[in-house]
Write a protein that binds this DNA or RNA. Structure first.
Lengths: 227, 227
DNA sequence: ACCCGTTTTTACGGTTTCTTTATGCGGGCG
DNA sequence: CGCCCGCATAAAGAAACCGTAAAAACGGGT
């Protein structure tokens, strides 16, 4: 997921569609529109969204048929429809929808549910593309790291190590794991590489490199980025 | 998560509470009840649930205060309350609630949302096997162990022994078994290693290391982690 | 061909962890 | 009663590991 999540709004009523998209854009999302099933599929293929807001009552196709497709594409799905039947909700949720909101809806609530859906999806995919620990923030998408306000320059290897640690923030990664991920399987025993890289990272990111709090060491096992 | 997910229903109105629990039990869940905040916390500690159905309007404490606690305990939270204010919903969802349903609710829809919450939770936790015995909890995935609130540092061997014991919690593991698992087949007779490691573990994890309750000794056979 | 930033090696002192040995306690048994 | 065995505890020497520094090799761009 990019720093600005991509949301696809599938809704046949243009007025409502625009309304939703405006609200999304105002809240920092990138919104794409689709008025029907075929259009939605095309948009899906063109650039896979992070979340789909799906109206079930489409003119050309039943939205329920699209649901599995979005799911397979890795998107979260929030069904947003006028159909209030309990059976419909159950069917949609059990088909993999992440939430179900009936029209008319409250915009603030919808946005909160959108956030919740994205949170769930993010957890599922396990990729936090922006991570902030203390005063350092890591933007995976931009491949940028900053401490406080200034940006910090990292060499490729340094960045790769940090990224791997950040992808599993809080978890203890073994030397072998990190080495495999960054240097490839053939170097999974060259712990010295790791030491040099970690030292460089600490020097650049830690407030007190002598007493590291960000990248911790578990003697004999590996390193861990605090969560 | 067990084969039958454990759900804690926090709701002060006995009639509604029973109704919900009955519905849950009929659908293959194990339901626990709590009429207030303190009761909920006790139930939480006794056996951490997979999901909490939380009514915000409790007599003794605002449900919103409990929400973070449940989240930290690894439970999914479905807020089920009479408060229909949009701001309330936004606050709850942004505090980590996985869904928000207002009373009166439809039972089938609630059950579908329960399923969705559990699905999300399972995805989030992935295969994070976490074991809690008394006040010590072992997170295999993170390779972390904590007693009470503080984290406890374990050396590699200490952790390996504990992990092996935890993997077969409640079962009696022979000296040879543990030694093979941790030190390798060539040291399966060096019981001294084991004693030193167990002692270190007890010192760090037991409330009274002189009277161990967590790691028990079966004279002449091996050790056992209580379940 | 040369320069500069990056990566790979190598070396060393200090610390953590592991192994090994020693001692004391208590229960079962002759 | 005294001996032996299994266990807990303590402590010390050995080994493994870490952080640090710096030199050597590398590689892309000018």
């Amino acid at each position: 997921m990019k720093s600005r999540p991509l949301i696809l709004v599938v809704e046949d009523e243009p007025a409502i569609r625009r309304l939703i998209c405006r609200a999304l854009e105002l809240n920092g999302y990138v919104a794409r529109e689709a008025g029907g099933a075929v259009e939605a599929l095309r948009a899906m293929r063109a650039s896979p969204p992070d979340l789909v807001l799906l109206d079930l009552g489409l003119p050309d196709r039943d939205g329920m048929e699209l649901l599995p497709l979005f799911r397979e594409g890795g998107a979260a799905v929030l069904v947003l429809t006028a159909r209030g039947e309990s059976a419909e909700k159950v069917a949609a949720l059990d088909s993999g929808a992440d939430d179900y909101v009936t029209k008319p809806f409250d915009t603030d609530e919808l946005l909160a549910r959108v956030r919740t859906c994205l949170r769930h999806r993010q957890a599922v995919l396990g990729q936090t593309d922006r991570l902030t620990v203390g005063d350092v923030s890591i933007d995976m998408d931009m491949r940028r790291v900053s401490k406080g306000l200034e940006e910090v320059h990292l060499t490729p290897k340094e960045y790769d190590v940090l990224a791997e640690l950040a992808r599993h923030a809080g978890r203890l990664l073994t030397h072998a794991h990190l080495l495999r991920a960054v240097w490839g399987p053939s170097h999974q025993d060259d712990v010295e590489y790791l030491r040099v890289a970690v030292r460089a990272l600490r020097r650049k990111l830690e407030s007190d490199p002598a007493a590291p709090v960000l990248i911790r060491n578990e003697p004999g096992v590996g390193y861990r980025l605090v969560a």
